[in-house]
Amino acid sequence: MMKIVSTIIIVGLLLPGVAWAQSPSSILPLLTGAYAPAEGGCEAAAAAFIYVEDKGLGANKTAGKVLAVKQEGNSFVLDVLWIEAGSDESDGDRDTVKIDVKDDRSFYFTNTASKRTLMRWCS
């Protein structure tokens, strides 16, 4: 009986850690989740957030479908189709995004509309 109780307690202590674990993105060597500018932190305006997903990017209510990825050392150049919520792909805007990976929880983000910004993981 003592072994069963001990096993239940150990499993109960391990599971919360598993639930909080983040997986790496399949397009970049980064953890999935929300990233915000290092200067403003995670309390920055919502417009500053970049969401790294399993196979794509996001920003606010805009999904970024990654059409192609080219790796150059620790830099990744992504051909992205941004699609606003409620729109379809024919209304999307093509964009070139450059991500310079610093580590698995931070990167420099640059695209056609923004300058190079250090983004840190918030999730």
Rank of each mutant, 00 (worst) to 15 (best):
E39M: 14
I83Y: 02
S114D: 00
S25K: 08
V66M: 06
S6R: 07
M119C: 09
G12T: 07
V5T: 08
F109R: 05
V52M: 06
A38E: 12
M119S: 05
V80F: 00
G12K: 13
K70V: 10
G41I: 13
A19V: 11
W82E: 04
D88C: 04
G12I: 14
Y51F: 09
I10Q: 01
Y51D: 12
A48W: 03
G41T: 07
G40Q: 10
S123Q: 06
L31P: 01
A48L: 07
D54C: 03
A46S: 12
E84V: 02
T117M: 14
L78D: 00
D91A: 13
E89T: 05
T112H: 05
I99K: 07
V5L: 09
F49I: 00
N74T: 07
T110H: 02
K55Q: 07
L30Y: 03
G12C: 15
L57E: 00
K102A: 07
D93E: 15
L67T: 00
V80Q: 07
L78V: 00
A44N: 06
D79K: 14
A113S: 04
W20P: 00
F109L: 09
P24F: 15
D103S: 15
S90F: 08
G92Q: 11
K98P: 11
P37E: 10
S75T: 15
I10K: 08
S114R: 11
S23T: 13
Q22L: 07
T110A: 12
Q22H: 10
A85K: 11
E43V: 12
L81D: 00
W82Q: 03
D95T: 03
V18A: 15
I83K: 05
M119P: 03
E39T: 10
E53H: 04
A19P: 01
S106G: 11
A21T: 14
P29Q: 06
V101W: 04
A19C: 07
E43P: 05
G86Y: 04
D93S: 13
L28N: 10
G64R: 00
R105D: 09
Y35N: 11
V97S: 06
L28D: 11
S123D: 08
Q71F: 05
A68E: 14
V101M: 06
V52C: 15
L15Y: 15
L57A: 02
S123H: 09
P29T: 02
D79N: 08
S26G: 02
S106W: 08
R120H: 08
G33P: 03
A113Y: 11
L13M: 11
V80C: 03
G12H: 12
C42F: 01
N111F: 01
A21Y: 11
F49A: 06
W82G: 02
D91P: 01
L57V: 03
N111I: 00
I10V: 13
Y35S: 08
K61L: 14
G58A: 01
E84P: 10
G86M: 01
K3P: 05
G12D: 12
S26R: 09
A47V: 01
F109G: 01
Y108W: 10
I99L: 14
T96Y: 06
